[in-house]
Design a protein around this nucleic acid. Sequence first.
RNA 1: GGUGCCAUACCCAAGUGGUAAGGGAACGGUCUGCAAAACCGUGAUGCAUCGGUUCGAAUCCGAUUGGCACCUCCA
Length: 469
Amino acid sequence: MSIYLYNTMGRKLEEFKPINEQEVGLYTCGPTVYNYAHIGNLRTFIFEDVLKRALLHSNYKVKHVMNITDVGHLTDDGDDGDDKMTKKAKEVGKSVWEIASFYTDAFINDATDLNLLKPNVLCKATDHISDMIELIKRLEKNGHTYISGGNVYFSIDTYKDYGKLANQNLDDLITAVRDDVSVDDNKKNSKDFVLWFTNSKFGEQQMMWDSPWGRGYPGWHIECSAMSMKYLGESFDIHCGGIDAIPVHHTNEIAQSEAATNKKWVNYWVHGEFLLDETGKMSKSKGDFLTLSLLKNKGYDPMDYRFFTLNGHYRSQLRFSFENLDTARKNRLSIVSKIQELLDNNAQQVKIVSEESIALQNEFDECVNNNLNMPMAIAVLWKTLKSNINDNEKYSLILYFDEVFGLKFNEIKKREIVIPNEIINLVNLRTNAKKEKDFKKADEIRAEIEKLGYILKDTAKGPVLSKKL
RNA sequence: GGUGCCAUACCCAAGUGGUAAGGGAACGGUCUGCAAAACCGUGAUGCAUCGGUUCGAAUCCGAUUGGCACCUCCA
Protein backbone atom coordinates (compact mmCIF):
# COMPACT_ATOMS: atom_id res chain seq x y z
CA MET A 1 0.00 0.00 0.00
CA SER A 2 1.42 3.34 -0.85
CA ILE A 3 1.09 6.58 1.02
CA TYR A 4 -0.74 9.52 -0.47
CA LEU A 5 0.31 12.99 0.64
CA TYR A 6 -1.03 16.42 -0.15
CA ASN A 7 1.74 18.23 -1.96
CA THR A 8 1.66 22.00 -1.56
CA MET A 9 3.66 22.18 -4.78
CA GLY A 10 0.85 21.60 -7.23
CA ARG A 11 -1.81 21.60 -4.50
CA LYS A 12 -3.01 18.09 -4.86
CA LEU A 13 -2.95 14.66 -3.32
CA GLU A 14 -0.11 12.60 -4.75
CA GLU A 15 1.11 9.08 -4.35
CA PHE A 16 4.42 9.19 -2.55
CA LYS A 17 7.29 7.77 -4.55
CA PRO A 18 10.73 8.10 -3.02
CA ILE A 19 13.77 8.98 -5.10
CA ASN A 20 15.60 6.09 -3.52
CA GLU A 21 13.61 3.06 -2.40
CA GLN A 22 16.14 2.33 0.32
CA GLU A 23 15.86 5.56 2.21
CA VAL A 24 13.49 8.52 2.30
CA GLY A 25 15.01 11.97 2.81
CA LEU A 26 12.92 14.09 5.14
CA TYR A 27 13.73 17.64 6.15
CA THR A 28 11.66 19.42 8.76
CA CYS A 29 12.15 23.07 9.61
CA GLY A 30 13.13 23.23 13.25
CA PRO A 31 12.71 25.93 15.85
CA THR A 32 14.38 29.27 16.20
CA VAL A 33 15.77 29.07 19.68
CA TYR A 34 15.17 32.50 21.11
CA ASN A 35 12.22 31.51 23.27
CA TYR A 36 10.16 28.50 24.34
CA ALA A 37 8.15 26.73 21.70
CA HIS A 38 4.43 27.27 22.15
CA ILE A 39 1.93 24.49 21.72
CA GLY A 40 1.08 25.73 18.24
CA ASN A 41 4.70 25.26 17.18
CA LEU A 42 4.58 21.85 18.76
CA ARG A 43 1.49 20.87 16.83
CA THR A 44 3.53 21.08 13.63
CA PHE A 45 6.32 18.98 15.09
CA ILE A 46 3.78 16.36 16.16
CA PHE A 47 2.32 16.22 12.66
CA GLU A 48 5.81 15.82 11.21
CA ASP A 49 6.50 13.07 13.69
CA VAL A 50 3.33 11.28 12.61
CA LEU A 51 4.44 11.59 8.99
CA LYS A 52 7.81 10.11 9.84
CA ARG A 53 6.18 7.30 11.80
CA ALA A 54 3.80 6.61 8.95
CA LEU A 55 6.75 6.21 6.58
CA LEU A 56 8.51 3.90 9.01
CA HIS A 57 5.25 2.01 9.51
CA SER A 58 5.22 1.44 5.74
CA ASN A 59 8.71 -0.04 6.11
CA TYR A 60 10.61 2.83 4.58
CA LYS A 61 13.89 3.78 6.09
CA VAL A 62 13.86 7.48 6.83
CA LYS A 63 16.73 9.89 7.11
CA HIS A 64 15.27 12.78 9.03
CA VAL A 65 17.12 16.07 9.27
CA MET A 66 16.00 18.94 11.47
CA ASN A 67 17.73 22.25 11.86
CA ILE A 68 18.10 24.41 14.91
CA THR A 69 18.13 28.06 13.99
CA ASP A 70 20.51 29.41 16.56
CA VAL A 71 21.79 32.36 14.60
CA GLY A 72 19.84 35.56 14.72
CA HIS A 73 17.54 36.48 11.99
CA LEU A 74 15.84 39.73 11.75
CA THR A 75 12.30 40.37 12.76
CA ASP A 76 11.95 41.94 9.36
CA ASP A 77 13.27 40.48 6.16
CA GLY A 78 14.81 43.82 5.31
CA ASP A 79 17.45 45.35 7.42
CA ASP A 80 14.93 46.98 9.63
CA GLY A 81 13.76 44.74 12.33
CA ASP A 82 15.35 43.60 15.48
CA ASP A 83 17.46 40.54 15.73
CA LYS A 84 15.38 38.15 17.84
CA MET A 85 18.29 36.42 19.45
CA THR A 86 20.11 39.63 20.21
CA LYS A 87 16.96 41.22 21.56
CA LYS A 88 16.30 38.34 23.89
CA ALA A 89 19.92 38.24 25.02
CA LYS A 90 19.78 41.91 25.92
CA GLU A 91 16.56 41.45 27.83
CA VAL A 92 17.96 38.81 30.13
CA GLY A 93 21.58 39.95 30.18
CA LYS A 94 23.08 36.84 28.64
CA SER A 95 25.06 36.12 25.52
CA VAL A 96 23.23 34.97 22.42
CA TRP A 97 25.12 31.71 22.65
CA GLU A 98 23.73 31.09 26.11
CA ILE A 99 20.23 31.93 24.95
CA ALA A 100 20.52 29.55 22.02
CA SER A 101 21.82 26.75 24.17
CA PHE A 102 19.14 27.21 26.83
CA TYR A 103 16.20 27.19 24.42
CA THR A 104 17.66 24.37 22.36
CA ASP A 105 17.63 22.24 25.49
CA ALA A 106 14.10 23.38 26.28
CA PHE A 107 12.98 22.36 22.81
CA ILE A 108 14.61 18.95 23.08
CA ASN A 109 12.84 18.43 26.39
CA ASP A 110 9.49 19.25 24.82
CA ALA A 111 10.23 16.91 21.93
CA THR A 112 11.08 14.11 24.35
CA ASP A 113 7.96 14.76 26.41
CA LEU A 114 5.84 14.56 23.28
CA ASN A 115 7.46 11.29 22.23
CA LEU A 116 8.83 12.75 19.00
CA LEU A 117 11.28 10.40 17.35
CA LYS A 118 14.75 11.85 17.34
CA PRO A 119 15.94 13.22 14.01
CA ASN A 120 18.86 11.34 12.50
CA VAL A 121 20.58 14.66 12.15
CA LEU A 122 19.81 17.62 14.37
CA CYS A 123 21.96 20.39 12.99
CA LYS A 124 22.69 23.85 14.23
CA ALA A 125 22.98 26.74 11.84
CA THR A 126 26.06 28.06 13.63
CA ASP A 127 27.90 24.79 12.94
CA HIS A 128 27.34 25.14 9.19
CA ILE A 129 28.42 28.67 8.35
CA SER A 130 31.06 27.42 5.92
CA ASP A 131 28.46 25.35 4.05
CA MET A 132 26.30 28.43 3.71
CA ILE A 133 29.23 30.47 2.44
CA GLU A 134 29.98 27.80 -0.17
CA LEU A 135 26.36 27.87 -1.31
CA ILE A 136 26.35 31.65 -1.60
CA LYS A 137 29.55 31.43 -3.63
CA ARG A 138 27.82 29.04 -6.03
CA LEU A 139 24.92 31.43 -6.37
CA GLU A 140 27.32 34.28 -6.97
CA LYS A 141 29.10 32.28 -9.64
CA ASN A 142 25.78 31.52 -11.35
CA GLY A 143 24.90 35.21 -11.41
CA HIS A 144 22.02 35.20 -8.95
CA THR A 145 23.41 37.68 -6.45
CA TYR A 146 24.33 41.30 -6.12
CA ILE A 147 25.97 43.32 -3.40
CA SER A 148 24.29 46.42 -2.16
CA GLY A 149 24.79 48.46 0.95
CA GLY A 150 27.34 45.95 2.14
CA ASN A 151 25.01 42.95 2.00
CA VAL A 152 24.77 40.11 -0.47
CA TYR A 153 21.28 39.76 -1.94
CA PHE A 154 19.56 37.06 -3.94
CA SER A 155 18.00 38.51 -7.06
CA ILE A 156 14.65 36.81 -7.54
CA ASP A 157 14.37 38.10 -11.10
CA THR A 158 17.16 35.69 -12.04
CA TYR A 159 15.11 32.65 -11.08
CA LYS A 160 12.15 32.14 -13.35
CA ASP A 161 9.99 29.95 -11.12
CA TYR A 162 10.08 32.27 -8.13
CA GLY A 163 6.84 32.07 -6.15
CA LYS A 164 5.71 28.76 -7.65
CA LEU A 165 5.09 27.15 -4.28
CA ALA A 166 2.94 29.99 -3.03
CA ASN A 167 1.12 30.43 -6.32
CA GLN A 168 2.30 33.96 -6.63
CA ASN A 169 3.62 35.52 -9.78
CA LEU A 170 6.31 38.11 -9.87
CA ASP A 171 4.17 40.91 -11.23
CA ASP A 172 1.74 40.61 -8.34
CA LEU A 173 4.54 40.57 -5.85
CA ILE A 174 6.08 43.71 -7.21
CA THR A 175 2.86 45.66 -7.19
CA ALA A 176 1.43 44.25 -3.98
CA VAL A 177 3.89 45.80 -1.62
CA ARG A 178 2.10 46.69 1.53
CA ASP A 179 2.31 50.31 2.45
CA ASP A 180 2.64 49.69 6.16
CA VAL A 181 5.95 47.90 5.76
CA SER A 182 9.01 49.89 4.85
CA VAL A 183 11.15 48.75 1.95
CA ASP A 184 14.85 48.09 2.11
CA ASP A 185 16.25 50.61 -0.39
CA ASN A 186 19.21 48.38 -1.13
CA LYS A 187 17.01 45.87 -2.89
CA LYS A 188 16.50 45.86 -6.61
CA ASN A 189 13.26 43.99 -6.18
CA SER A 190 11.35 44.37 -2.95
CA LYS A 191 11.18 40.57 -2.63
CA ASP A 192 14.92 40.06 -2.97
CA PHE A 193 16.38 38.68 0.22
CA VAL A 194 19.68 38.80 2.02
CA LEU A 195 22.12 35.91 1.77
CA TRP A 196 24.89 37.47 3.81
CA PHE A 197 24.92 40.55 6.02
CA THR A 198 28.08 42.52 6.64
CA ASN A 199 26.46 45.80 7.27
CA SER A 200 23.59 45.75 9.67
CA LYS A 201 22.27 48.39 11.95
CA PHE A 202 23.24 46.03 14.67
CA GLY A 203 26.93 46.74 14.92
CA GLU A 204 27.18 44.97 18.22
CA GLN A 205 26.15 41.63 16.74
CA GLN A 206 27.75 38.91 18.85
CA MET A 207 27.63 36.23 16.19
CA MET A 208 29.90 37.13 13.31
CA TRP A 209 32.01 35.11 10.90
CA ASP A 210 34.57 35.90 8.22
CA SER A 211 33.43 35.51 4.63
CA PRO A 212 34.52 36.50 1.14
CA TRP A 213 32.16 39.48 1.47
CA GLY A 214 33.45 40.60 4.84
CA ARG A 215 32.81 39.77 8.43
CA GLY A 216 29.14 39.21 9.09
CA TYR A 217 26.42 36.64 9.39
CA PRO A 218 24.08 34.67 7.12
CA GLY A 219 20.58 35.58 6.01
CA TRP A 220 17.69 33.60 7.36
CA HIS A 221 16.85 31.30 4.48
CA ILE A 222 20.25 30.05 3.45
CA GLU A 223 20.74 27.72 6.41
CA CYS A 224 17.94 25.32 5.46
CA SER A 225 19.19 25.03 1.89
CA ALA A 226 22.78 24.51 2.90
CA MET A 227 22.13 21.98 5.63
CA SER A 228 19.44 19.97 3.89
CA MET A 229 21.59 19.54 0.81
CA LYS A 230 24.62 18.67 2.89
CA TYR A 231 22.84 15.79 4.62
CA LEU A 232 20.20 14.75 2.09
CA GLY A 233 21.77 15.58 -1.25
CA GLU A 234 20.88 18.17 -3.86
CA SER A 235 17.50 16.57 -4.45
CA PHE A 236 15.48 14.85 -1.77
CA ASP A 237 11.99 13.64 -1.02
CA ILE A 238 10.04 15.59 1.57
CA HIS A 239 10.29 19.03 3.11
CA CYS A 240 7.89 19.98 5.89
CA GLY A 241 6.97 23.02 7.88
CA GLY A 242 4.12 25.19 8.99
CA ILE A 243 1.94 26.85 6.36
CA ASP A 244 3.35 30.23 7.27
CA ALA A 245 6.66 29.17 5.76
CA ILE A 246 5.14 28.77 2.28
CA PRO A 247 5.15 32.32 0.95
CA VAL A 248 8.55 33.53 2.13
CA HIS A 249 10.83 31.03 3.77
CA HIS A 250 10.18 28.01 1.60
CA THR A 251 9.72 30.12 -1.50
CA ASN A 252 13.14 31.63 -0.95
CA GLU A 253 14.71 28.32 -0.06
CA ILE A 254 13.53 26.85 -3.34
CA ALA A 255 14.81 29.81 -5.31
CA GLN A 256 18.30 29.76 -3.86
CA SER A 257 18.62 25.95 -3.84
CA GLU A 258 17.49 25.40 -7.40
CA ALA A 259 19.37 28.44 -8.66
CA ALA A 260 22.53 26.96 -7.18
CA THR A 261 22.14 23.42 -8.50
CA ASN A 262 19.88 23.81 -11.55
CA LYS A 263 18.05 20.73 -10.31
CA LYS A 264 14.68 20.10 -8.78
CA TRP A 265 15.33 20.37 -5.09
CA VAL A 266 12.37 18.79 -3.24
CA ASN A 267 9.64 16.50 -4.54
CA TYR A 268 6.99 16.77 -1.83
CA TRP A 269 6.13 19.82 0.24
CA VAL A 270 3.94 19.01 3.20
CA HIS A 271 2.65 21.78 5.43
CA GLY A 272 0.80 21.73 8.72
CA GLU A 273 -2.02 24.13 9.56
CA PHE A 274 -2.08 26.41 12.53
CA LEU A 275 -3.38 25.89 16.00
CA LEU A 276 -5.69 28.72 16.97
CA ASP A 277 -6.69 29.94 20.37
CA GLU A 278 -9.91 31.70 21.25
CA THR A 279 -8.70 34.91 19.71
CA GLY A 280 -7.15 33.53 16.54
CA LYS A 281 -3.63 32.52 15.72
CA MET A 282 -1.35 31.59 18.55
CA SER A 283 1.61 33.87 18.33
CA LYS A 284 4.79 34.45 20.20
CA SER A 285 4.58 38.16 19.73
CA LYS A 286 1.30 38.33 21.63
CA GLY A 287 3.18 38.12 24.88
CA ASP A 288 1.70 35.31 26.89
CA PHE A 289 1.58 32.05 25.05
CA LEU A 290 0.91 28.48 25.97
CA THR A 291 3.84 26.17 26.42
CA LEU A 292 4.00 22.48 27.09
CA SER A 293 5.44 23.07 30.53
CA LEU A 294 2.48 25.26 31.35
CA LEU A 295 0.15 22.39 30.45
CA LYS A 296 2.27 20.04 32.53
CA ASN A 297 2.07 22.40 35.49
CA LYS A 298 -1.69 22.35 35.15
CA GLY A 299 -1.58 18.59 35.48
CA TYR A 300 -1.87 17.51 31.86
CA ASP A 301 0.27 14.74 30.47
CA PRO A 302 2.10 15.67 27.25
CA MET A 303 0.30 12.69 25.72
CA ASP A 304 -2.99 14.47 26.41
CA TYR A 305 -1.85 17.26 24.13
CA ARG A 306 -0.52 14.85 21.52
CA PHE A 307 -3.83 13.00 21.54
CA PHE A 308 -5.69 16.30 21.30
CA THR A 309 -3.84 17.23 18.12
CA LEU A 310 -4.40 13.78 16.63
CA ASN A 311 -8.13 14.34 16.78
CA GLY A 312 -7.92 16.95 14.05
CA HIS A 313 -6.43 16.64 10.59
CA TYR A 314 -3.02 18.28 10.15
CA ARG A 315 -4.29 20.30 7.21
CA SER A 316 -7.14 21.85 9.18
CA GLN A 317 -6.93 24.64 11.64
CA LEU A 318 -7.51 23.38 15.12
CA ARG A 319 -8.86 25.52 17.89
CA PHE A 320 -7.31 25.01 21.27
CA SER A 321 -9.30 25.36 24.46
CA PHE A 322 -8.88 23.81 27.84
CA GLU A 323 -12.35 22.35 27.52
CA ASN A 324 -11.25 20.47 24.41
CA LEU A 325 -8.01 19.44 26.03
CA ASP A 326 -9.98 18.07 28.97
CA THR A 327 -12.07 15.98 26.62
CA ALA A 328 -8.89 14.68 24.99
CA ARG A 329 -7.45 13.77 28.38
CA LYS A 330 -10.60 11.98 29.39
CA ASN A 331 -10.68 10.00 26.18
CA ARG A 332 -7.03 9.11 26.35
CA LEU A 333 -7.30 7.92 29.93
CA SER A 334 -10.29 5.84 28.97
CA ILE A 335 -8.24 4.17 26.24
CA VAL A 336 -5.29 3.69 28.59
CA SER A 337 -7.48 2.05 31.20
CA LYS A 338 -8.90 -0.35 28.64
CA ILE A 339 -5.39 -1.28 27.59
CA GLN A 340 -4.46 -1.66 31.23
CA GLU A 341 -7.33 -4.04 31.69
CA LEU A 342 -6.18 -6.13 28.74
CA LEU A 343 -2.70 -6.36 30.21
CA ASP A 344 -3.94 -7.18 33.67
CA ASN A 345 -5.78 -10.06 32.04
CA ASN A 346 -2.44 -11.27 30.67
CA ALA A 347 -2.81 -10.06 27.10
CA GLN A 348 0.33 -10.74 25.06
CA GLN A 349 1.62 -9.42 21.81
CA VAL A 350 1.00 -12.03 19.14
CA LYS A 351 0.94 -12.36 15.37
CA ILE A 352 -2.32 -11.04 13.98
CA VAL A 353 -4.10 -13.80 12.10
CA SER A 354 -7.85 -13.57 12.50
CA GLU A 355 -9.85 -12.24 9.62
CA GLU A 356 -11.51 -9.57 11.69
CA SER A 357 -8.22 -8.32 13.10
CA ILE A 358 -6.61 -8.17 9.72
CA ALA A 359 -9.57 -6.18 8.47
CA LEU A 360 -9.07 -3.65 11.27
CA GLN A 361 -5.38 -3.53 10.54
CA ASN A 362 -6.05 -2.77 6.89
CA GLU A 363 -8.64 -0.19 7.76
CA PHE A 364 -6.13 1.55 9.98
CA ASP A 365 -3.43 1.52 7.30
CA GLU A 366 -5.82 3.03 4.80
CA CYS A 367 -6.47 5.94 7.16
CA VAL A 368 -2.78 6.53 7.68
CA ASN A 369 -1.90 6.23 4.02
CA ASN A 370 -4.68 8.58 3.00
CA ASN A 371 -2.76 11.74 3.80
CA LEU A 372 -2.40 10.89 7.49
CA ASN A 373 -6.04 10.85 8.48
CA MET A 374 -5.50 10.50 12.20
CA PRO A 375 -9.06 11.34 13.31
CA MET A 376 -10.28 8.41 11.27
CA ALA A 377 -7.46 6.21 12.50
CA ILE A 378 -8.51 6.98 16.05
CA ALA A 379 -12.05 5.93 15.16
CA VAL A 380 -10.56 2.58 14.12
CA LEU A 381 -8.87 2.39 17.50
CA TRP A 382 -12.23 2.84 19.26
CA LYS A 383 -13.78 0.26 16.98
CA THR A 384 -10.99 -2.16 17.85
CA LEU A 385 -11.40 -1.61 21.57
CA LYS A 386 -15.10 -2.40 21.28
CA SER A 387 -14.69 -5.39 19.02
CA ASN A 388 -14.99 -9.01 20.09
CA ILE A 389 -11.61 -10.15 18.91
CA ASN A 390 -9.50 -11.89 21.49
CA ASP A 391 -7.42 -9.92 23.98
CA ASN A 392 -4.06 -10.86 22.53
CA GLU A 393 -4.91 -9.71 19.04
CA LYS A 394 -6.65 -6.64 20.37
CA TYR A 395 -3.58 -5.66 22.33
CA SER A 396 -1.32 -6.41 19.38
CA LEU A 397 -3.42 -4.25 17.10
CA ILE A 398 -3.23 -1.37 19.55
CA LEU A 399 0.55 -1.59 19.60
CA TYR A 400 0.51 -1.72 15.82
CA PHE A 401 -1.58 1.46 15.70
CA ASP A 402 0.64 3.16 18.22
CA GLU A 403 3.62 2.87 15.91
CA VAL A 404 1.97 5.80 14.15
CA PHE A 405 0.08 7.48 16.99
CA GLY A 406 3.12 7.55 19.26
CA LEU A 407 0.93 7.75 22.36
CA LYS A 408 3.19 5.51 24.45
CA PHE A 409 0.66 2.69 24.70
CA ASN A 410 3.65 0.35 24.60
CA GLU A 411 4.79 1.73 27.93
CA ILE A 412 1.71 0.46 29.74
CA LYS A 413 2.69 -2.60 31.76
CA LYS A 414 0.77 -5.31 33.52
CA ARG A 415 0.23 -4.21 37.07
CA GLU A 416 1.66 -6.22 39.86
CA ILE A 417 -1.27 -6.23 42.17
CA VAL A 418 0.15 -5.70 45.59
CA ILE A 419 -2.56 -4.34 47.79
CA PRO A 420 -1.45 -3.20 51.20
CA ASN A 421 -3.04 -5.01 54.12
CA GLU A 422 -4.39 -1.70 55.29
CA ILE A 423 -6.54 -1.45 52.18
CA ILE A 424 -7.66 -5.05 52.38
CA ASN A 425 -8.76 -4.47 55.96
CA LEU A 426 -10.74 -1.41 54.91
CA VAL A 427 -12.44 -3.36 52.14
CA ASN A 428 -13.43 -6.08 54.61
CA LEU A 429 -14.71 -3.51 57.07
CA ARG A 430 -16.83 -1.97 54.38
CA THR A 431 -18.21 -5.31 53.23
CA ASN A 432 -19.30 -5.96 56.81
CA ALA A 433 -20.82 -2.51 57.10
CA LYS A 434 -22.78 -3.16 53.94
CA LYS A 435 -24.01 -6.46 55.31
CA GLU A 436 -25.23 -4.62 58.37
CA LYS A 437 -26.89 -2.02 56.14
CA ASP A 438 -24.73 0.68 57.63
CA PHE A 439 -24.38 2.43 54.28
CA LYS A 440 -23.17 5.66 55.73
CA LYS A 441 -20.16 3.93 57.21
CA ALA A 442 -19.66 1.99 53.99
CA ASP A 443 -19.54 5.20 51.97
CA GLU A 444 -17.09 6.73 54.40
CA ILE A 445 -14.76 3.78 54.09
CA ARG A 446 -15.01 3.90 50.32
CA ALA A 447 -13.97 7.57 50.43
CA GLU A 448 -11.09 6.65 52.71
CA ILE A 449 -9.92 3.97 50.29
CA GLU A 450 -10.04 6.44 47.45
CA LYS A 451 -7.95 8.86 49.46
CA LEU A 452 -5.34 6.14 49.76
CA GLY A 453 -5.16 5.82 46.01
CA TYR A 454 -7.55 2.99 45.20
CA ILE A 455 -10.92 2.95 43.54
CA LEU A 456 -13.46 0.47 44.75
CA LYS A 457 -16.31 -0.68 42.56
CA ASP A 458 -19.09 -3.04 43.52
CA THR A 459 -19.78 -5.69 40.96
CA ALA A 460 -22.00 -8.71 40.85
CA LYS A 461 -19.00 -10.79 41.95
CA GLY A 462 -18.16 -8.54 44.88
CA PRO A 463 -15.95 -5.49 45.36
CA VAL A 464 -13.20 -4.85 42.84
CA LEU A 465 -10.21 -2.65 43.57
CA SER A 466 -8.21 -0.71 41.07
CA LYS A 467 -5.39 1.68 41.49
CA LYS A 468 -6.00 5.27 40.55
CA LEU A 469 -4.31 6.11 37.25
C1' G B 1 -4.65 45.18 -3.02
C1' G B 2 -2.81 39.87 -3.66
C1' U B 3 -2.92 34.49 -2.00
C1' G B 4 -5.06 30.45 0.41
C1' C B 5 -8.38 28.03 3.80
C1' C B 6 -12.96 27.19 6.40
C1' A B 7 -18.60 26.88 7.57
C1' U B 8 -21.20 19.37 9.30
C1' A B 9 -25.68 17.84 15.81
C1' C B 10 -25.02 21.06 22.47
C1' C B 11 -19.20 20.76 21.91
C1' C B 12 -14.83 18.72 19.25
C1' A B 13 -14.37 16.41 14.55
C1' A B 14 -14.10 12.82 9.94
C1' G B 15 -16.32 12.25 5.34
C1' U B 16 -14.47 15.48 -1.02
C1' G B 17 -20.16 12.27 -6.34
C1' G B 18 -23.71 6.92 -4.20
C1' U B 19 -27.34 8.25 0.32
C1' A B 20 -24.00 11.63 7.27
C1' A B 21 -17.26 7.96 10.97
C1' G B 22 -15.64 8.61 15.91
C1' G B 23 -15.35 10.90 20.80
C1' G B 24 -17.38 14.06 24.68
C1' A B 25 -21.88 16.00 26.81
C1' A B 26 -27.18 14.76 27.32
C1' C B 27 -31.07 11.22 27.83
C1' G B 28 -32.94 6.00 28.55
C1' G B 29 -31.63 1.01 30.21
C1' U B 30 -28.69 -3.16 32.77
C1' C B 31 -26.15 -3.48 37.48
C1' U B 32 -26.20 -1.13 42.67
C1' G B 33 -28.43 0.25 49.24
C1' C B 34 -26.66 4.59 46.79
C1' A B 35 -22.76 5.96 43.79
C1' A B 36 -18.90 5.45 40.40
C1' A B 37 -17.27 2.55 36.58
C1' A B 38 -18.54 -0.69 32.87
C1' C B 39 -21.82 -2.36 29.18
C1' C B 40 -26.24 -1.67 25.91
C1' G B 41 -29.38 1.84 23.53
C1' U B 42 -31.25 6.92 21.69
C1' G B 43 -29.64 11.30 18.75
C1' A B 44 -28.37 15.63 12.27
C1' U B 45 -34.27 13.42 6.53
C1' G B 46 -29.86 16.83 6.89
C1' C B 47 -24.07 19.18 6.27
C1' A B 48 -24.22 28.47 6.32
C1' U B 49 -27.89 30.51 2.36
C1' C B 50 -29.64 30.61 -2.74
C1' G B 51 -29.24 28.75 -7.57
C1' G B 52 -26.96 25.22 -11.15
C1' U B 53 -24.72 20.40 -13.12
C1' U B 54 -26.10 15.06 -12.28
C1' C B 55 -30.03 9.21 -12.22
C1' G B 56 -27.79 10.81 -7.59
C1' A B 57 -24.31 16.47 -4.17
C1' A B 58 -22.22 17.74 2.48
C1' U B 59 -19.03 16.41 -1.60
C1' C B 60 -18.62 19.51 -8.35
C1' C B 61 -19.83 24.80 -10.44
C1' G B 62 -21.63 29.97 -9.58
C1' A B 63 -23.40 33.72 -6.33
C1' U B 64 -24.33 35.42 -1.34
C1' U B 65 -23.38 35.63 3.97
C1' G B 66 -20.13 34.73 7.96
C1' G B 67 -15.22 33.35 9.91
C1' C B 68 -9.79 32.49 9.69
C1' A B 69 -4.84 32.66 8.04
C1' C B 70 -0.71 34.32 4.99
C1' C B 71 1.65 38.27 1.89
C1' U B 72 6.02 41.80 8.22
C1' C B 73 9.64 37.52 12.86
C1' C B 74 6.54 33.13 14.14
C1' A B 75 4.97 26.16 13.12
